[in-house]
Design a protein around this nucleic acid. Structure first.
Ligand code: FES
Ligand code: FES
Lengths: 156, 156
DNA sequence: TAATACTTGACAGAATTACTCAGCTATTAT
DNA sequence: ATAATAGCTGAGTAATTCTGTCAAGTATTA
């Protein structure tokens, strides 16, 4: 239950890949495709959405690719997913684009609303920087580095 | 993003309806159908699943219907949804029935896992009793009753 | 001007969802 | 007994959503 679409998942992985290569300049779709095992054609669709949303910007021509629009700590997972999959809406009643007639007096409505807010704050609080640190940690784990605070939960 | 299917939603509403009528004995599908605006045929399918899972039991023949297998405080929303929609699995990688090959070294895996655990503890902590109290509260709100602890968040 | 790389819109197959339907079995009141 | 009530079961189907592909562009640089 409560699956994320592949579009959203690939989108986050693509953004992570762009963030990871930040020092090497623009990242091409081809590189992302190879490193994350997602087809070029599908990534084109996904990255285009994210660009229109202003989360990344593109550089055309040879040597081009995609770069983050802001620093990794300013780009949340929630922001990425919202662009690719629309707002968090456990039920159609909670989707601002739809709505519901029997909201008043509906107990479950409050339940789903609370769950949705819970999820949303989790996603909005988690950023690309956290993923980068989590990755760093994973690579150097055995050497007993100090662990960044928020990431610790990712390794419990 | 992250929608719950109607099956899960209707299931929770049906269970709530059975719990609410607990003092009046077994609740019929027809009653649930009328009170919750869900077709009898669809409810048959849903309640059958919940019965096989042992969350409710049925009484056949005239005067029959469905009754809860336990007290409302022992039946969690999570338990209901798991039966109707399978385990919480944000990605297919996290579904015990599927799995993933590239788990090791995958940062997002840890992210989705943490989110899934977050959601699951929310759902497992919330019970039919909480819904009943939330409903009670909603009905008597204006008369300034004292509010049960956990339900307060449902009305923030 | 050739090569690189992003841009855009349409489209199609697969999978899932959201149901309906027909016919059955068990229980109780008369 | 038997008629009425009420749940039980499996199959089937229309609609929607998902998961991509494809073709034909435009912009930039060497
Ligand atoms: S049915 Fe829409 S809010 Fe409950
Ligand atoms: S791709 Fe399966 S765990 Fe990351």
């Amino acid at each position: 239950m409560l699956r994320l679409s592949t579009k959203g998942q690939y989108g986050v992985r693509a953004m992570f890949e762009i963030a990871r290569s930040i020092s090497r300049g623009p990242t091409t779709i081809k590189e992302i495709s190879e490193r994350q095992d997602v087809s070029v054609a599908y990534l084109e669709q996904i990255l285009n959405t994210l660009r229109k949303a202003g989360l990344i910007s593109s550089v055309r021509g040879p040597g081009g690719g995609y770069v983050l629009s802001g620093t990794p700590d300013k780009i949340s997972i929630g922001a990425i997913l919202r662009e690719l999959e629309g707002p968090v809406a456990i039920t159609s009643c909670l989707d601002p684009r739809e709505g519901c007639l029997r909201v008043d007096g509906c107990v479950t409505h409050l339940l789903w609303k609370a769950l949705g807010e819970n999820i949303e704050s989790f996603l909005d609080d988690m950023t690309l920087k956290d993923l980068l640190e989590g990755n760093e940690l994973m690579a150097t784990r055995r050497r007993g580095r100090r662990q960044p605070e928020k990431i610790r939960m990712l390794h419990k």
